[in-house]
Protein backbone atom coordinates (compact mmCIF):
# COMPACT_ATOMS: atom_id res chain seq x y z
CA UNK A 1 0.00 0.00 0.00
CA UNK A 2 2.83 2.29 1.02
CA UNK A 3 4.75 1.51 -2.18
CA UNK A 4 1.69 2.31 -4.27
CA UNK A 5 1.26 5.68 -2.57
CA UNK A 6 4.94 6.46 -3.10
CA UNK A 7 4.67 5.53 -6.77
CA UNK A 8 1.61 7.74 -7.18
CA UNK A 9 3.38 10.63 -5.48
CA UNK A 10 6.45 10.25 -7.69
CA UNK A 11 4.28 10.11 -10.81
CA UNK A 12 2.49 13.29 -9.73
CA UNK A 13 5.81 15.09 -9.13
CA UNK A 14 7.10 13.95 -12.54
CA UNK A 15 3.93 15.14 -14.24
CA UNK A 16 4.22 18.58 -12.63
CA UNK A 17 7.90 18.82 -13.66
CA UNK A 18 7.01 17.88 -17.24
CA UNK A 19 4.21 20.45 -17.41
CA UNK A 20 6.50 23.19 -16.10
CA UNK A 21 9.41 22.33 -18.38
CA UNK A 22 6.96 22.32 -21.30
CA UNK A 23 5.72 25.78 -20.32
CA UNK A 24 9.27 27.08 -20.07
CA UNK A 25 10.18 25.74 -23.51
CA UNK A 26 7.00 27.26 -24.94
CA UNK A 27 7.93 30.72 -23.61
CA UNK A 28 11.44 30.45 -25.02
CA UNK A 29 10.17 29.32 -28.40
CA UNK A 30 7.64 32.15 -28.47
CA UNK A 31 10.15 34.85 -27.63
CA UNK A 32 12.58 33.35 -30.13
CA UNK A 33 9.92 33.52 -32.83
CA UNK A 34 9.25 37.17 -32.06
CA UNK A 35 12.88 38.11 -32.48
CA UNK A 36 13.50 35.75 -35.35
CA UNK A 37 10.45 37.25 -37.01
CA UNK A 38 13.01 39.71 -38.41
CA UNK A 39 11.49 41.45 -41.36
CA UNK A 40 7.98 40.68 -40.08
CA UNK A 41 8.60 42.32 -36.70
CA UNK A 42 6.12 42.32 -33.85
CA UNK A 43 2.51 42.01 -35.08
CA UNK A 44 1.31 43.80 -31.91
CA UNK A 45 3.43 46.89 -32.60
CA UNK A 46 1.23 50.01 -32.57
CA UNK A 47 2.25 53.27 -34.19
CA UNK A 48 0.75 56.36 -32.55
CA UNK A 49 0.36 59.77 -34.11
CA UNK A 50 1.58 61.71 -31.06
CA UNK A 51 2.26 64.96 -32.87
CA UNK A 52 -1.14 64.79 -34.54
CA UNK A 53 -2.78 64.91 -31.10
CA UNK A 54 -3.52 61.21 -30.51
CA UNK A 55 -3.86 60.39 -26.78
CA UNK A 56 -0.80 58.62 -25.34
CA UNK A 57 -0.10 57.07 -21.91
CA UNK A 58 3.43 56.55 -20.57
CA UNK A 59 4.08 54.71 -17.29
CA UNK A 60 7.13 55.53 -15.19
CA UNK A 61 7.84 52.78 -12.66
CA UNK A 62 10.38 53.74 -10.00
CA UNK A 63 12.30 51.49 -7.64
CA UNK A 64 11.53 54.03 -4.89
CA UNK A 65 9.87 57.30 -5.88
CA UNK A 66 11.26 59.01 -2.76
CA UNK A 67 14.92 59.11 -3.82
CA UNK A 68 16.38 62.20 -5.53
CA UNK A 69 17.50 60.08 -8.49
CA UNK A 70 13.99 58.78 -9.14
CA UNK A 71 12.55 62.25 -8.68
CA UNK A 72 15.13 63.61 -11.12
CA UNK A 73 14.19 61.02 -13.75
CA UNK A 74 10.49 61.63 -13.19
CA UNK A 75 10.89 65.35 -13.64
CA UNK A 76 13.06 64.81 -16.73
CA UNK A 77 10.36 62.64 -18.31
CA UNK A 78 7.65 65.18 -17.44
CA UNK A 79 9.70 68.11 -18.77
CA UNK A 80 10.33 66.31 -22.06
CA UNK A 81 6.61 65.69 -22.60
CA UNK A 82 5.33 68.97 -21.13
CA UNK A 83 4.70 70.57 -24.52
CA UNK A 84 2.28 67.81 -25.58
CA UNK A 85 -0.96 67.90 -23.59
CA UNK A 86 -2.10 64.65 -25.22
CA UNK A 87 0.75 62.76 -23.46
CA UNK A 88 -0.25 61.52 -20.02
CA UNK A 89 2.48 60.35 -17.65
CA UNK A 90 1.62 58.16 -14.66
CA UNK A 91 4.32 57.55 -12.05
CA UNK A 92 4.36 54.50 -9.81
CA UNK A 93 6.61 53.79 -6.82
CA UNK A 94 7.41 50.17 -5.98
CA UNK A 95 8.71 50.76 -2.42
CA UNK A 96 12.00 49.05 -3.35
CA UNK A 97 10.24 45.75 -4.05
CA UNK A 98 10.74 43.79 -7.27
CA UNK A 99 7.50 41.83 -6.82
CA UNK A 100 5.56 45.08 -6.57
CA UNK A 101 7.20 46.26 -9.80
CA UNK A 102 6.12 43.01 -11.49
CA UNK A 103 2.56 43.66 -10.30
CA UNK A 104 2.64 47.26 -11.59
CA UNK A 105 4.09 46.07 -14.92
CA UNK A 106 1.21 43.57 -15.33
CA UNK A 107 -1.33 46.31 -14.61
CA UNK A 108 0.31 48.65 -17.11
CA UNK A 109 0.29 45.95 -19.80
CA UNK A 110 -3.40 45.23 -19.11
CA UNK A 111 -4.22 48.93 -19.23
CA UNK A 112 -2.46 49.14 -22.60
CA UNK A 113 0.02 51.87 -21.85
CA UNK A 114 1.85 53.05 -24.96
CA UNK A 115 5.32 52.95 -23.36
CA UNK A 116 6.92 52.01 -20.05
CA UNK A 117 10.01 53.56 -18.48
CA UNK A 118 11.32 51.53 -15.53
CA UNK A 119 14.21 51.42 -13.09
CA UNK A 120 14.32 47.70 -12.30
CA UNK A 121 14.67 46.76 -8.63
CA UNK A 122 15.96 43.39 -9.78
CA UNK A 123 16.85 42.82 -13.44
CA UNK A 124 16.27 39.05 -13.40
CA UNK A 125 12.90 39.32 -11.63
CA UNK A 126 11.59 41.94 -14.05
CA UNK A 127 12.83 40.26 -17.26
CA UNK A 128 9.66 38.18 -17.94
CA UNK A 129 7.41 41.24 -17.43
CA UNK A 130 9.57 43.33 -19.75
CA UNK A 131 9.48 40.58 -22.41
CA UNK A 132 5.69 40.36 -22.00
CA UNK A 133 5.30 44.15 -22.46
CA UNK A 134 7.50 44.17 -25.56
CA UNK A 135 5.54 41.25 -27.01
CA UNK A 136 2.34 43.22 -26.40
CA UNK A 137 3.83 46.02 -28.51
CA UNK A 138 4.67 48.30 -25.56
CA UNK A 139 8.22 49.67 -25.82
CA UNK A 140 10.11 49.38 -22.51
CA UNK A 141 13.01 51.67 -21.66
CA UNK A 142 15.05 50.64 -18.62
CA UNK A 143 16.96 53.12 -16.47
CA UNK A 144 20.42 52.39 -15.00
CA UNK A 145 19.86 48.66 -14.44
CA UNK A 146 19.49 46.25 -17.34
CA UNK A 147 17.23 43.24 -17.02
CA UNK A 148 18.70 39.84 -17.92
CA UNK A 149 20.81 40.04 -21.08
CA UNK A 150 18.64 37.80 -23.28
CA UNK A 151 15.54 39.95 -22.69
CA UNK A 152 15.92 42.39 -25.54
CA UNK A 153 13.93 45.59 -25.14
CA UNK A 154 13.69 49.04 -26.68
CA UNK A 155 16.56 50.75 -24.81
CA UNK A 156 18.67 51.03 -21.67
CA UNK A 157 19.64 54.52 -20.51
CA UNK A 158 22.35 54.27 -17.88
CA UNK A 159 24.90 56.15 -15.85
CA UNK A 160 28.49 54.93 -15.90
CA UNK A 161 29.24 52.62 -12.99
CA UNK A 162 32.59 50.78 -13.08
CA UNK A 163 34.43 53.67 -14.72
CA UNK A 164 32.79 56.16 -12.33
CA UNK A 165 34.39 54.21 -9.46
CA UNK A 166 37.76 54.44 -11.22
CA UNK A 167 37.36 58.18 -11.72
CA UNK A 168 36.55 58.73 -8.03
CA UNK A 169 39.59 56.68 -7.01
CA UNK A 170 41.94 58.63 -9.29
CA UNK A 171 40.72 62.02 -8.11
CA UNK A 172 40.71 61.06 -4.43
CA UNK A 173 44.26 59.68 -4.77
CA UNK A 174 45.34 62.99 -6.27
CA UNK A 175 43.69 64.94 -3.43
CA UNK A 176 45.32 62.90 -0.63
CA UNK A 177 48.74 62.91 -2.27
CA UNK A 178 48.72 59.27 -3.35
CA UNK A 179 49.13 57.74 0.10
CA UNK A 180 47.32 57.12 3.38
CA UNK A 181 44.44 55.18 4.89
CA UNK A 182 41.02 55.25 3.30
CA UNK A 183 37.68 53.53 3.98
CA UNK A 184 34.60 52.58 1.98
CA UNK A 185 30.96 52.94 3.00
CA UNK A 186 29.04 50.31 1.08
CA UNK A 187 25.38 50.08 0.09
CA UNK A 188 23.43 46.85 -0.09
CA UNK A 189 25.32 44.12 -1.97
CA UNK A 190 23.70 42.59 -5.04
CA UNK A 191 22.80 45.75 -6.93
CA UNK A 192 24.71 45.73 -10.21
CA UNK A 193 25.33 49.47 -10.52
CA UNK A 194 26.65 50.07 -6.99
CA UNK A 195 28.58 46.78 -6.96
CA UNK A 196 30.37 47.84 -10.17
CA UNK A 197 31.00 51.32 -8.79
CA UNK A 198 32.69 49.86 -5.71
CA UNK A 199 34.64 47.34 -7.79
CA UNK A 200 35.91 50.12 -10.07
CA UNK A 201 37.09 52.11 -7.07
CA UNK A 202 38.82 49.18 -5.32
CA UNK A 203 40.43 47.85 -8.52
CA UNK A 204 41.92 51.25 -9.29
CA UNK A 205 43.30 51.76 -5.78
CA UNK A 206 44.87 48.28 -5.77
CA UNK A 207 46.29 48.54 -9.29
CA UNK A 208 47.58 52.08 -9.28
CA UNK A 209 48.11 53.33 -5.74
CA UNK A 210 50.25 50.97 -3.68
CA UNK A 211 50.63 53.50 -0.84
CA UNK A 212 46.91 53.85 -0.31
CA UNK A 213 45.50 51.31 2.10
CA UNK A 214 41.79 50.46 2.33
CA UNK A 215 41.52 49.93 6.09
CA UNK A 216 37.77 49.47 6.52
CA UNK A 217 34.66 48.60 4.52
CA UNK A 218 31.23 48.77 6.15
CA UNK A 219 27.69 48.89 4.88
CA UNK A 220 25.34 51.75 5.70
CA UNK A 221 22.53 50.37 3.50
CA UNK A 222 22.42 53.59 1.41
CA UNK A 223 21.09 55.45 4.50
CA UNK A 224 22.40 58.87 5.51
CA UNK A 225 21.85 58.34 9.24
CA UNK A 226 23.48 54.91 9.29
CA UNK A 227 26.46 56.32 7.38
CA UNK A 228 26.88 58.93 10.13
CA UNK A 229 27.28 56.17 12.73
CA UNK A 230 29.60 54.14 10.47
CA UNK A 231 31.77 57.20 9.86
CA UNK A 232 32.00 57.87 13.60
CA UNK A 233 33.37 54.38 14.15
CA UNK A 234 35.82 54.81 11.24
CA UNK A 235 37.16 57.99 12.83
CA UNK A 236 37.30 56.27 16.20
CA UNK A 237 39.33 53.39 14.78
CA UNK A 238 41.61 55.37 12.48
CA UNK A 239 42.51 58.82 13.71
CA UNK A 240 44.73 59.26 10.64
CA UNK A 241 42.02 58.40 8.10
CA UNK A 242 42.54 60.43 4.95
CA UNK A 243 39.67 59.52 2.70
CA UNK A 244 36.24 57.89 2.54
CA UNK A 245 34.40 56.73 -0.55
CA UNK A 246 30.67 56.27 -0.09
CA UNK A 247 28.83 54.38 -2.83
CA UNK A 248 26.07 56.99 -2.99
CA UNK A 249 25.74 60.65 -2.12
CA UNK A 250 23.28 60.17 0.74
CA UNK A 251 25.88 58.11 2.63
CA UNK A 252 28.68 60.55 1.74
CA UNK A 253 26.53 63.37 3.19
CA UNK A 254 26.04 61.39 6.41
CA UNK A 255 29.78 60.74 6.64
CA UNK A 256 30.51 64.45 6.09
CA UNK A 257 28.08 65.41 8.86
CA UNK A 258 29.86 63.04 11.25
CA UNK A 259 33.24 64.54 10.34
CA UNK A 260 31.88 68.08 10.74
CA UNK A 261 30.44 67.17 14.15
CA UNK A 262 33.87 66.00 15.23
CA UNK A 263 35.47 69.27 14.13
CA UNK A 264 37.14 67.59 11.15
CA UNK A 265 35.36 69.50 8.40
CA UNK A 266 37.33 69.19 5.17
CA UNK A 267 40.15 67.24 6.84
CA UNK A 268 38.95 63.88 5.53
CA UNK A 269 38.49 63.59 1.79
CA UNK A 270 34.88 62.35 1.50
CA UNK A 271 33.57 61.21 -1.89
CA UNK A 272 30.14 60.16 -3.04
CA UNK A 273 28.50 59.21 -6.32
CA UNK A 274 25.27 60.41 -8.04
CA UNK A 275 25.61 64.19 -7.87
CA UNK A 276 22.46 65.11 -5.95
CA UNK A 277 21.79 68.73 -5.02
CA UNK A 278 22.64 68.43 -1.30
CA UNK A 279 25.98 66.75 -2.11
CA UNK A 280 26.89 69.56 -4.51
CA UNK A 281 26.14 72.10 -1.77
CA UNK A 282 28.35 70.15 0.65
CA UNK A 283 31.18 70.20 -1.89
CA UNK A 284 30.75 73.97 -2.16
CA UNK A 285 31.01 74.46 1.60
CA UNK A 286 33.99 72.10 1.92
CA UNK A 287 32.28 69.29 3.83
CA UNK A 288 32.67 66.87 0.92
CA UNK A 289 35.61 66.56 -1.48
CA UNK A 290 33.76 65.38 -4.58
CA UNK A 291 31.20 63.25 -6.34
CA UNK A 292 30.56 61.68 -9.72
CA UNK A 293 27.69 63.70 -11.15
CA UNK A 294 25.14 62.37 -13.60
CA UNK A 295 22.37 64.65 -14.82
CA UNK A 296 19.29 62.69 -13.77
CA UNK A 297 16.91 65.12 -15.43
CA UNK A 298 18.76 64.62 -18.69
CA UNK A 299 18.69 60.85 -18.17
CA UNK A 300 14.90 60.88 -17.65
CA UNK A 301 14.43 63.19 -20.59
CA UNK A 302 16.56 60.90 -22.81
CA UNK A 303 14.42 57.91 -21.83
CA UNK A 304 11.28 59.90 -22.69
CA UNK A 305 12.73 60.90 -26.09
CA UNK A 306 13.39 57.25 -26.92
CA UNK A 307 9.87 56.29 -25.80
CA UNK A 308 8.37 58.98 -28.06
CA UNK A 309 10.51 57.82 -30.97
CA UNK A 310 9.54 54.16 -30.47
CA UNK A 311 5.83 54.95 -30.19
CA UNK A 312 5.56 57.35 -33.10
CA UNK A 313 7.69 55.47 -35.63
CA UNK A 314 8.06 52.07 -37.28
CA UNK A 315 11.03 51.21 -35.05
CA UNK A 316 10.39 47.77 -33.63
CA UNK A 317 12.43 46.18 -30.86
CA UNK A 318 11.51 42.71 -32.16
CA UNK A 319 14.15 43.01 -34.89
CA UNK A 320 16.97 43.95 -32.47
CA UNK A 321 19.73 41.47 -31.65
CA UNK A 322 20.66 43.27 -28.42
CA UNK A 323 19.26 46.07 -26.27
CA UNK A 324 20.56 49.45 -27.45
CA UNK A 325 22.30 51.50 -24.74
CA UNK A 326 22.63 55.20 -24.10
CA UNK A 327 25.36 55.93 -21.57
CA UNK A 328 25.14 59.27 -19.76
CA UNK A 329 28.24 61.42 -19.42
CA UNK A 330 29.79 61.15 -15.93
CA UNK A 331 31.29 64.37 -14.56
CA UNK A 332 33.91 64.37 -11.81
CA UNK A 333 32.85 67.21 -9.52
CA UNK A 334 35.18 68.83 -7.00
CA UNK A 335 35.27 72.25 -5.39
CA UNK A 336 37.05 73.55 -8.53
CA UNK A 337 34.20 72.88 -10.95
CA UNK A 338 31.07 72.50 -8.80
CA UNK A 339 30.11 76.09 -9.69
CA UNK A 340 29.87 75.04 -13.35
CA UNK A 341 26.77 72.97 -12.60
CA UNK A 342 23.98 75.47 -12.93
CA UNK A 343 20.96 75.62 -10.64
CA UNK A 344 18.65 74.18 -13.31
CA UNK A 345 20.87 71.09 -13.65
CA UNK A 346 20.81 70.34 -9.90
CA UNK A 347 18.32 67.68 -8.93
Amino acid sequence: MKTRKLALLLTAVLMICLVFSGCERKVREDSGAAIAGGSGGNPNKKKVDIYGGEEVKIAYIAHDLGTPNNQGWKEGIERECASWPNIKIDSYGAEEKADKQVEIMTNCINQQYNAIIIQCSDGAALAPSIAQAEEAGIPVITLNLDCSKDTIHSALVMAVDYDAGRMAADKMAEQIGGKGKIAIIEGVPGLERTDNLERGFIDTVKEKYKDIEIVAQQSASFQKNTARTVMESFMQQHADLKGVFAINDAMAEGAALAANNKGKKGEICIWGADGEKIALEMIEDGSMAGTIYTNSWDEGSTAAKIALLMMSSDYDSAVLTETPKVIMEPIVVTKDNVGDISEEDRW
Binding site: E186, P189, Q217, Q218, S219, S221, T229, S233
Partner: peptide
Protein backbone atom coordinates in the same frame (compact mmCIF):
# COMPACT_ATOMS: atom_id res chain seq x y z
CA UNK B 1 25.97 46.58 20.01
CA UNK B 2 26.05 48.63 16.81
CA UNK B 3 29.16 50.47 17.95
CA UNK B 4 30.99 47.32 19.09
CA UNK B 5 30.22 45.43 15.88
CA UNK B 6 31.27 48.39 13.80
CA UNK B 7 34.54 48.85 15.72
CA UNK B 8 35.34 45.18 15.22
CA UNK B 9 34.63 45.54 11.51
CA UNK B 10 31.91 42.90 11.60
CA UNK B 11 30.28 42.72 8.21
CA UNK B 12 26.69 43.94 8.13
CA UNK B 13 25.58 40.53 6.87
Amino acid sequence: LNNGLSLMNVDST
